[in-house]
Design a protein around this nucleic acid. Structure first.
Length: 299
DNA sequence: AAGGGTGCCAACCGCGTTTAG
DNA sequence: GCTAAACGCGGTTGGCACCCT
């Protein structure tokens, strides 16, 4: 690098703060027509007085057709806890296992709900990725177990438990709810997005099996496969989803084992022999018909 | 009713990584 | 190989809505 980073845009010439519905429409329309190959030039071409980074963030976190609205389900929260235990603050990685959820949203849910439940007395503990503040492994496991216990008792108490982390009736309106929902709905009607519709409905139909949520009990055992379930043990049957396949996935060649874990995040080179095998493996694990499509959708 | 406190989330900031020339 | 631009990620913050006194 040279003499420091040039600012991504002239802050005096770009609008900041909340996006208006008109700006949203402009961005959606432009991206659906032209894509987003260059975020930096996009706002200029689209006629938006916004920084490219701001456009990208708005699109990814809010305007993408496959962004799932509403509260997090128990399964999603379990998945977050699971993957956070394995991956730490790798929000984008975690988000890749929760179709329709963004890294920002997951990060917020973790910071505002899940972390407090897991580490209620750790006010100084701000990041699990910070080694110095990191709770001991034993503490983590204990806390994960406590959360799972709370969940079970909560589910037993009510046939219709709150499905999200918003357990106390707080209802924020900063998301496009109420009037804004109608407005966005109108925007959607204006747009031709057949392809996106297909993808989105596919997501919604298969969400329950997209991320095989490992029961918390079995999570407490040392994971043998980074990012995926292990076969658990004697404790696993209590809460397992019915559609969950517990067979140990066969590890294709090309995955290297480090520290007793297989690194599935290391995608083989597209030209390598392992690539097709990797695709096939990931396809099976994510229950997507076409994993390459999944990669595209996740942007 | 009012005002201070708190929770929450969308958006911003800055840095590391990747890509292009 | 070097440099700068662009991208992407994770941490942080501003401000709104609700709660409490």
């Amino acid at each position: 690098m040279g003499k420091g980073r040039a600012p991504c845009c002239d802050k005096s010439k770009v609008k900041r703060g909340p996006w208006s519905p008109k700006e949203d429409l402009t961005l959606i329309t432009f991206i659906q027509k032209h894509g987003h190959h260059n975020w930096r030039s996009l706002p200029k071409l689209a006629g938006l007085m916004r920084c490219g980074k701001s456009c990208r963030l708005r699109w990814i976190n809010y305007l993408r057709p496959d962004v799932k609205r509403g509260n997090f389900s128990k399964e999603e929260e379990d998945a977050i806890i699971h993957f956070h235990q394995t991956l730490g603050n790798k929000w984008s990685k975690i988000a890749s296992f929760l179709p329709g959820r963004t890294d920002n949203e997951i990060k917020n849910v973790w910071n505002t709900h899940l972390k407090k439940r897991l580490f209620p007395n750790s006010s100084s503990y701000s990041s699990i990725s910070c080694p110095n503040d990191r709770p001991t492994e034993a503490d983590q496991k204990k806390n994960y177990a406590i959360v799972q216990e709370e969940r079970n008792s909560r589910d037993n108490e009510s046939q219709d438990p709150p499905s999200s982390s918003h357990l106390h009736g707080k209802h924020m309106h900063t998301k496009p709810e109420l009037d804004e929902v109608n407005e966005l709905h109108e925007i959607q009607l204006l747009l031709d997005h057949d392809d996106f519709d297909d993808i989105t409905s596919a997501f919604l139909q298969t969400t329950e099996t997209l991320f095989p949520v490992q029961p918390l009990d079995s999570l407490l055992q040392t994971p043998t496969l980074t990012g995926f379930h292990n076969t658990g043990g004697a404790t696993q049957e209590a809460t397992e989803p019915q559609s969950f396949d517990h067979s140990q996935p066969e590890i294709p060649c090309g995955f290297e084992e480090t520290n007793g874990e297989f690194d599935l995040w290391s995608q083989p080179s597209p030209n390598s022999e392992e690539f097709d095998e990797w695709l096939s493996f990931m396809d099976n694990q994510t229950y997507f018909d076409d994993f390459t499509l999944f990669g595209e959708v996740c942007l």
